[in-house]
Deep mutational scan, measured.
Amino acid sequence: KLPPGWEKRMSRSSGRVYYFNHITNASQWERPSGNSSSG
């Protein structure tokens, strides 16, 4: 399961899957890690 705020999306241009955070408006190709504590 993804960390809070993150969701899986697909890029229309490349067709690749990326991850988008609707809370911080951040996007990245790598899967966000939800196990590590923020610090």
Rank of each mutant, 00 (worst) to 15 (best):
K1R: 12
K1I: 14
K1A: 13
K1N: 13
K1V: 14
K1S: 13
K1T: 14
K1D: 15
K1E: 14
K1G: 13
L2P: 15
L2N: 01
L2H: 02
L2R: 02
L2T: 03
L2E: 15
L2M: 05
L2Y: 03
L2S: 02
P3D: 04
P3N: 02
P3H: 02
P3V: 02
P3Q: 03
P3S: 03
P3I: 02
P3Y: 02
P3E: 04
P3F: 02
P3L: 04
P4I: 08
P4A: 10
P4E: 10
P4K: 07
P4G: 06
P4Q: 07
G5I: 02
G5R: 01
G5L: 02
G5Y: 06
G5M: 04
G5S: 03
G5E: 05
G5W: 05
G5T: 01
W6H: 00
W6L: 01
W6R: 00
W6I: 00
W6Q: 01
W6A: 00
E7Q: 08
E7M: 07
E7I: 11
E7W: 05
E7C: 12
E7K: 05
E7D: 04
E7Y: 06
E7V: 13
E7L: 07
E7T: 10
E7P: 01
E7H: 10
K8E: 11
K8Y: 07
K8G: 05
K8T: 09
K8R: 14
K8A: 14
K8I: 14
K8D: 02
K8Q: 13
R9A: 04
R9W: 03
R9Q: 03
R9L: 06
R9I: 06
R9K: 08
R9S: 02
R9F: 05
R9E: 01
R9C: 14
R9D: 00
R9H: 06
R9Y: 06
R9M: 06
R9V: 05
M10H: 09
M10E: 08
M10G: 03
M10N: 06
M10Y: 15
M10S: 07
M10R: 15
M10W: 15
S11K: 05
S11F: 09
S11M: 11
S11Q: 12
S11N: 08
S11V: 11
S11P: 02
S11R: 05
S11Y: 09
S11H: 15
S11I: 12
R12D: 08
R12M: 13
R12N: 09
R12A: 14
R12V: 13
R12E: 10
R12P: 14
R12C: 15
R12K: 13
R12T: 11
S13H: 13
S13F: 11
S13T: 13
S13L: 12
S13R: 15
S13I: 14
S13E: 10
S13D: 09
S14G: 09
S14F: 08
S14T: 14
S14W: 06
S14D: 10
S14I: 05
S14K: 07
S14N: 10
S14P: 04
S14Q: 08
G15K: 07
G15I: 02
G15Y: 03
G15R: 07
G15W: 03
G15V: 03
G15S: 05
G15F: 04
G15D: 04
G15L: 05
G15T: 03
G15N: 08
R16F: 06
R16T: 05
R16N: 04
R16A: 06
R16P: 01
R16Q: 07
R16V: 05
R16M: 06
R16K: 10
V17Q: 05
V17G: 02
V17A: 07
V17T: 09
V17C: 10
V17E: 08
Y18A: 00
Y18R: 02
Y18Q: 00
Y18G: 00
Y18P: 00
Y18K: 01
Y18S: 01
Y18I: 03
Y18F: 09
Y19K: 00
Y19M: 00
Y19V: 00
Y19F: 07
Y19G: 00
Y19Q: 00
Y19E: 00
F20P: 00
F20L: 03
F20I: 05
F20T: 03
F20K: 03
F20Y: 15
F20N: 01
N21A: 02
N21Y: 04
N21V: 02
N21K: 02
N21F: 05
N21M: 02
N21G: 01
N21D: 03
H22P: 07
H22Y: 15
H22L: 14
H22N: 11
H22M: 10
H22V: 15
H22Q: 09
H22W: 14
I23S: 06
I23W: 08
I23E: 09
I23N: 09
I23H: 09
I23R: 06
I23K: 06
I23P: 01
I23F: 12
I23A: 07
I23D: 08
T24R: 03
T24W: 04
T24L: 05
T24K: 03
T24Q: 03
T24N: 05
T24S: 06
T24M: 04
T24E: 03
N25A: 07
N25P: 00
N25E: 06
N25M: 14
N25V: 03
N25S: 08
N25R: 15
A26P: 00
A26F: 09
A26G: 06
A26W: 09
A26R: 14
A26K: 15
A26L: 13
A26T: 14
A26S: 09
A26D: 08
S27H: 11
S27M: 15
S27R: 15
S27A: 14
S27Y: 15
S27C: 15
Q28T: 06
Q28S: 08
Q28R: 05
Q28D: 02
Q28A: 04
Q28I: 05
Q28F: 04
Q28G: 02
W29R: 05
W29H: 05
W29P: 03
W29S: 05
W29D: 04
W29L: 07
W29K: 04
E30D: 09
E30V: 06
E30H: 10
E30M: 07
E30T: 08
E30N: 07
E30R: 07
E30I: 06
E30G: 06
E30Y: 07
E30L: 06
R31A: 09
R31Q: 07
R31H: 12
R31V: 10
R31K: 09
R31T: 07
R31D: 08
R31N: 07
R31I: 10
R31P: 10
R31G: 03
P32S: 01
P32Y: 01
P32H: 02
P32M: 01
P32A: 01
P32N: 01
P32R: 00
P32G: 01
P32V: 01
P32D: 00
P32E: 01
P32C: 01
P32F: 02
S33H: 09
S33M: 12
S33I: 12
S33L: 12
S33P: 08
S33G: 12
S33A: 10
S33K: 10
G34E: 14
G34L: 13
G34W: 15
G34R: 09
G34V: 13
G34D: 13
G34P: 11
G34F: 14
N35D: 13
N35F: 12
N35W: 07
N35Y: 09
N35K: 11
N35Q: 11
N35I: 13
N35G: 11
N35S: 12
N35M: 11
N35R: 09
S36K: 10
S36N: 11
S36D: 13
S36R: 08
S36Q: 11
S36P: 12
S36H: 10
S36T: 13
S36L: 12
S36I: 11
S36C: 14
S37V: 12
S37Q: 12
S37E: 11
S37M: 11
S37D: 12
S37G: 10
S37F: 10
S37W: 10
S38F: 10
S38D: 12
S38C: 15
S38N: 12
S38K: 09
S38V: 12
S38I: 12
S38Y: 08
S38W: 09
S38E: 12
S38M: 12
G39Y: 07
G39L: 10
G39N: 11
G39K: 09
G39Q: 11
G39P: 12
G39C: 15
G39V: 11
G39M: 11
G39S: 11
